[in-house]
């Protein structure tokens, strides 16, 4: 009998084992839901699978009576645009400031303490300020996401620049590179895949800030919908929305991972070696 630490699941059992907790959770839910519905058919807390499905069908395929829109898709589009804009702005800012502070000692001395201080401000605490300054429209939501994740990604990028082997930077100088060429040809291309990794890590926080902002003031969006129907205890809509958000988060992460592998084929190999 080999030690437990040396026993590995094979190609068939590994995915099955991975699916097990999901199946268990679903079973527990079904049993609990049936037990509650048997006691009170109008119970709203744990709706049956059939009512979950019909709630999804309604928001996904039937136009809303008031606005005439397909609510699920409109909410999804609105949220993804906010999330995408916020994350894209953050990534761009992180690339600029992260590389500047990572590569140029004068930029580091000037900006690092400021960025570190910004990163310490709890973003939700200044949400009211954002609403007052930028109004209740899209800008304040996007700014909240940027405020929430950009300092984190900036510091991560600056650290990754610092982790590039000093030998490479010296070597580039002996090949005649000036500071600009060094940033353009040596630092930036090696930072891009690491930036994508940092963005993947920051996406969880980005969703948090998006949903918080939508919950407080919005006219559409996934977070807005959840907090709207909460008033009616509409678990039959909230639960599928949560699952949908989870799936979207998983898909964006997967897309970024695939993009990283496709765009920077040298990255994984290099990371293993160093």
């Amino acid at each position: 009998m080999r030690r437990l630490i040396n026993q590995r699941p094979n190609g068939v059992s590994a995915p099955l084992l991975g699916a097990l907790p999901f199946i268990l959770l679903l079973l527990v839910y079904i049993v609990a839901s049936q037990a509650r519905l048997a006691e009170n058919p109008n119970d709203k807390l744990l709706p049956g699978l059939d009512s979950l499905v019909s709630a999804i069908q309604q928001v996904a395929t039937e136009p809303d009576k008031r606005s005439g829109a397909l609510i699920l898709w409109r909410d999804t589009a609105a949220s993804l645009v906010r999330l995408g804009t916020g994350v894209a702005i953050s990534a761009l800012a992180a690339l600029l400031f992260g590389i500047a502070t990572g590569a140029l000692p004068y930029a580091r001395a000037t900006l690092s303490p400021f960025i570190a201080a910004l990163a310490l401000i709890p973003p939700l605490a200044i949400l009211p300020v954002l609403f007052i300054v930028f109004g209740l429209g899209e800008t304040s939501k996007i700014v909240l996401i940027v405020f929430g994740i950009a300092p984190f990604i900036m510091r991560d990028v600056a650290m990754r620049v610092g982790e590039l082997p000093g030998e490479q930077i010296i070597k580039a100088q002996t090949l005649g590179a000036n500071s600009w060429q060094l940033i353009l040809r040596v630092i930036t291309p090696q930072i891009l895949p690491r930036l994508l990794d940092a963005v993947r890590l920051a996406l969880g926080a980005a969703w948090l800030f998006l949903i918080a902002a939508e919950a407080i003031a919005a006219e559409d969006g996934l977070g807005y919908r959840i907090f709207l129907v909460r008033r009616y205890l509409a678990m039959d809509l909230i639960l599928p929305y949560v699952a949908w958000i989870t799936l979207l988060a998983f898909l964006t992460d997967w897309l970024l991972r695939v993009a990283n592998a496709k765009l920077f084929p040298w990255y994984q190999g290099g990371a293993r070696r160093s």
Partner: peptide, 8 residues
């Protein structure tokens, strides 16, 4: 001794 080529 090492790290003096550019991996990208």
């Amino acid at each position: 001794q090492r790290y003096s080529v550019f991996p990208h």
